[in-house]
Amino acid sequence: MIEPHAAGAATLATPPVAAAAAAAPDAPGVEALVDTFIAAHPGGHERLIPLLHLLQERLGHVPFEAQDVVADRLGLTPIQVFSVLSFYHFFTLTPRGRYPLKVCMGTACFVRHATRLIETIQDTLGIDVGDCTPDRLFSLEQVRCLGACGLAPAVMVGQDVHGNLDTKAMRRLITQLRSQGRREAVAAAKETPRG
């Protein structure tokens, strides 16, 4: 396994606390989240992975601070928590973009040229696999089969699967998401009361 180390190294360079604050300004407190979960699910160490799923879902990533809380409540050492977290691709140490682009690299997508989609995204957004754009709008990931092989090549954005994409459709999708992101940002700014 090479990735976990690479991911770990990347996070040490960017302070996770600042990143967490930027990603989810009104995220519920990690401690409250963990304690509520523990109270609702009596049990032992088998609760670790469900708990990490909860944090990943709510915070968009699982920073070291959150891992410490989990370790404390489950009676594990922080390194035990990190060893499990780093084993699974699903958990990340850095926040993802608002639109996480997960390009399927399953066999069916691969033979229908999913590599070209990755290149198109890299070209258009100037980011590599595993990175996030500076405005935190997009992040790029490569995933192993979305199980949408009938729609190959497919890209998952959040919970939506976009299928049968070619390079042109991919560029169109990015443009569309970008303007959607801008609209939402404007709408959010309007809603926030001034002063």
Partner: peptide, 23 residues
Amino acid sequence: RIGAGAFVCGEETALIASVEGKR
């Protein structure tokens, strides 16, 4: 129990370890 993106967990003993909350 929800997996977390590890192909090897399709192997039965690995899957059992994962259900137990381990690597």
